[in-house]
Every structure is written in C-alpha cells, then in structure tokens.
Amino acid sequence: MTADATDPRHETQTAAEAPPRLRDRVVGLARLSPTGAAGLALIVLFALLALFSGVLMPHDPVASYTDRILQPPSAEHWFGTDGNGMDVFSRVIYGARFGFGIAIPAVLLSVVIGVPVGLIAGYRGGYLDEVLMRFFDGLRVFPSIILALAVVAATGQSLFNVILVLGLLDSPVFARVVRAEVLSLRASVFVEGAVAAGNPTWRILFVHILPNAIQGALAQVAVRAAWAVRISATLAFLGVGIQAPTPEWGAMIRQGAEFMVTGQWWVGVFPGTALILMVFGLNLLGDGLQDVMDPRRRAAK
C-alpha cells in the first residue's frame, strides 16, 4: 500500500531526511572550493563577533581605567590594556563592526556605481564608452591610498566620507568587469531577439544582459571588500579617517606602534592580527567564489 502523504510517520521521515541533505550541500561546496569554505568560516566568525559583540565584550570598549594603563594580558584583560587604560580584547571584538560597517557599504556603493556604467558603456560603445571609461581610468591612475588620503583629508574624517571615497575609487573595477562581459554579449542571439521584439533599452540591459554579465562582478565582491577593509585601516593608521578612541583596528594599530619599541607589544599585535585574518578570509572567499562561478578555473585546478 502506498504511504499516505498526510501520514505523520511520513512527515517525520521527511523531516529527518532534510538535515543530511543540507549537510551534503555544505560538504559539496567545501569540496568544490576548500579555499572558499575556509574563507567563509573566517568571515562567519568575524560576523558573529560583530553581531554579538555586546555579549562577548567583558568591558566597555571606550571605558578608560586610569589605574590599569598598559597592563599586559591577564585573566582580567585577556589582550591587556592600551595607553588609555582601555581593554584591548573588547576593542578588538567591537572593531569587527567597523570592518563590516565599512566593507559592506563601500562595496555596495561600488557595485551601484560601476555595474550600470559598465552596462551602458559596453552596450552603447562609441564616444559614450570612451568618455566613461577614460573618466574611470583617471580614478585608477593615481595610487588609491594617496587619492583616498587627499579626498578624506579634504572632505572630513568621518565614517560616511571614508565609505563614500572607497566606494567611488573602487567602482571602476566593477565597471570594467561588467563592460567586458557586455561587449561579448551584445551581439548574442538572445540580445538581438530582444531588440527585434521591441524591448526598451533599459529592459535589454537589466533583464536580458545583466543576469548574464554579473557573475564576474559578484566574484569580485569579497576581494574588493578585503581591499576596502585594508585601505580604511591604512587611512586610520596614517591619521586620516576614523580616529581614536573609536575602536577601529587601524587606529588601534597606530597607537600600538608607539608602544612597540618600549615592549608593550599587545596594544598593536592583537588588532593587527584581527585585521590580517579578516582580510585573509575575504580574499580566500573571493578566490572560492571565482572557483565556483568559473568552471575553467576549477578545471585548471
């Protein structure tokens, strides 16, 4: 007799089979790209630190204990205290919020600017393509850190300005990637069919071409997020951008560098390690995304 779909035993059996299927998918992704899985694990760890920092921090990250200045790591202060008597462990955990709080908006802004420009420039071609690409090339001519330093110093040292500058400076990367894909797609049969059917230009670009041209840009998201985290920390280290006592890793490393020569290594080493691990994880994740989205890379490996 065929089992009834409404039979509670059938529902229990189906529910019991669901977790193994999900587990098999996760294992399959890990086998497909071990580097991507390792990077994802690191990023998930930092994401959990950022989300639950209020629970994980043993002390207020900006509270100053004047009687505990530059204390080495101990049971009370796991990563020691800095030159202001602030708990380094709590500040490192809270700093993960600024890592994601800068990387995610900056990359989203780059995508919002770069992808439409790449679509329009690649599809239209001609003078419009030349003007748009030459403007974006101009943004890439100067070293990014020098240009970011100049713009942030001129516009003001705020989180919003840092995100705005990083998003603008990195948008040419996405524009170039999308434009290259559009150039190869605009003569495709499905595009010609969409034009012959009388579709407006915006529909051809965003409905027919974009879904086929976006994979390369998506594969760059994690790598460019790593770039944004690194550049924002560099700006803070150089004294431009987010400033102390805000618990941002670059600013913490800058303060720690002053005490390194006198032996208080913990002030700069722990935020520096967190920065390295987050950038490393994002780069690994970006490499994994490229493996997943590009079969030729998988075949080469």
Rank of each mutant, 00 (worst) to 15 (best):
A148G: 09
F52G: 08
T201I: 15
P72K: 04
L275T: 11
M86L: 11
H208D: 14
A187R: 09
A197C: 01
F280G: 10
Q290D: 12
N283D: 06
I145N: 04
L277R: 10
E17N: 12
F206K: 08
E11H: 12
L42D: 02
V151I: 15
N212F: 09
N212I: 04
D82I: 04
D82S: 01
A121M: 10
G286F: 02
H10V: 15
A299M: 13
E76F: 06
G126P: 08
H208F: 09
T81E: 03
R186M: 03
A244Y: 07
N283S: 07
V261Y: 12
P143L: 05
V107G: 00
R230A: 11
H208S: 10
L282N: 01
A38P: 01
V117R: 07
R21E: 14
G85M: 10
A30F: 08
G250K: 10
V292R: 06
I231V: 15
F100H: 11
T246L: 08
G256N: 02
F206P: 04
F237A: 03
I120R: 09
K301R: 15
W202G: 14
A50W: 11
I163F: 02
V44G: 06
R297N: 02
L210R: 07
L139E: 04
L70Q: 08
A244S: 15
M293S: 03
